[in-house]
């Protein structure tokens, strides 16, 4: 798998293969059993409640805690995972030299290599069997429960990873369970447009590729705009077809187009909205300099389009193995 984001699989057979690879991790123990570095203690509780502005006296005041029927002060339940964090030393070592090998590390690296470099927690379901008391020594086991198909979010496209963590005390009694979901995402999907909510072209309909038009889509993938040309009479034609509409010849070759043209007509669509497109969506019918016409998206502001506008080809990666031409306003070129 290449590390370039352009080749990340977005849809189609590549994406399915990638997802299958990701899902081999489901059911595996995410990381080795982790033991708390320190027992539940008043100092860490104080750091936590002060940061949160939490004045509940059962976390800091023995007398107040007992007056509620507790045996003494308890830890704030939402502090659960704090007791099992690896600490600054191990964290920075992992950041510098890579995390210790584990199924979770391998899964995250697999995604990172495919361009999904961002990470953010999205869901956290915690169930507390009992409150944690001073002196409790916890350990945690974590199992990878699910890896989602590729989803597009406001932060970028990515995969959700769900782990199920079980917290036990020194007597091996379960004190809490936690279902934790993170998103490993590719921020470049949204960065290119500068808009966090920009649509992911990976969601668009895929072109219908068959034997007669495959050469054209193959060239587009290499960012080359070509025109089918009759080898007998020299007539250019688009869209591609098996025989020349002028002389009927089946012989043809490609001619490279300069990629410049003028707007013959256009339409700006506001509704209904199809996934993968930003709206309003302007679609052009472009008269290429070579003489054929081409339907393609307009990459400029819909307000600037007009019949006769000079345009120039631009390219848009849909992800996976699809790249298609679109056109930008040539008047705005510096």
């Amino acid at each position: 798998m290449s590390a370039t984001t352009q080749q990340r699989p977005a849809a189609g057979p590549d994406a399915e293969e990638f997802l299958t690879q990701l899902r081999t991790f489901v059911g595996q123990q995410a990381t080795p059993v982790r033991y708390a570095q320190d027992a539940v203690n008043p100092a860490m509780i104080r750091h936590f409640v002060e940061a949160m502005g939490d004045e509940n006296p059962v976390y800091t005041d023995e007398t107040a805690a007992r007056s509620t029927g507790r045996s003494g002060i308890v830890a704030p339940p939402p502090m659960l995972s704090s007791w099992l964090m690896v600490g600054y030393k191990a964290h920075t070592a992992a950041a510098e030299h890579g995390a210790p090998d584990s199924p979770m590390t391998r899964l995250l690296n697999l995604l990172g290599d495919a361009g999904y470099v961002g990470v953010v927690a999205t869901n956290d379901e915690q169930e507390y069997v009992r409150e944690l008391r001073i002196g409790d020594r916890l350990k945690m086991t974590a199992v990878i429960e699910d890896v989602s198909p590729r989803k597009v979010t406001g932060l970028g496209a990515g995969h959700f990873i769900t782990t199920l963590r079980t917290y036990t005390d020194a007597d091996d009694q379960v004190v809490a369970r936690q279902r934790f979901r993170i998103l490993r995402f590719d921020p470049t999907v949204t960065k290119s447009s500068g808009q966090p909510a920009a649509a992911d072209p990976g969601l668009r309909h895929r072109p219908f590729v068959m034997r007669d038009n495959q050469f054209w889509f193959d060239a587009a993938r290499e960012r080359r705009l070509v025109i089918q040309t009759c080898s007998d009479c020299g007539q250019l034609r688009h869209p591609p077809g098996p025989s020349c509409p002028q002389c009927g010849s089946f012989a043809w070759h490609e001619t490279a187009a300069a990629g410049r043209g003028t707007v013959h007509s256009y339409v700006t669509s506001h509704h209904p909205k199809a996934p993968g497109y930003d709206y309003p969506l302007t679609v052009l019918l472009v008269d290429l300099e070579e003489g054929t016409r081409l339907v393609a998206d307009y990459s400029g502001d819909p307000e600037t389009v007009r019949v006769g506008l000079p345009v120039e080809v631009d390219w848009l990666d849909y992800g996976g193995d699809v790249t298609l031409p679109r056109f930008r306003n040539r008047e705005e070129q510096s």
């Binding site: 107040a64 509620t68 869901n123 956290d124 379901e125 169930e127 507390y128 409150e131």
Partner: peptide
């Protein structure tokens, strides 16, 4: 803050 200290939180499910 609202329930007072007599309350026990038994579940917390968060979606960001």
């Amino acid at each position: 803050d609202w329930t007072g200290p007599g309350a026990f939180i038994t579940k917390l499910s968060t979606r960001l």
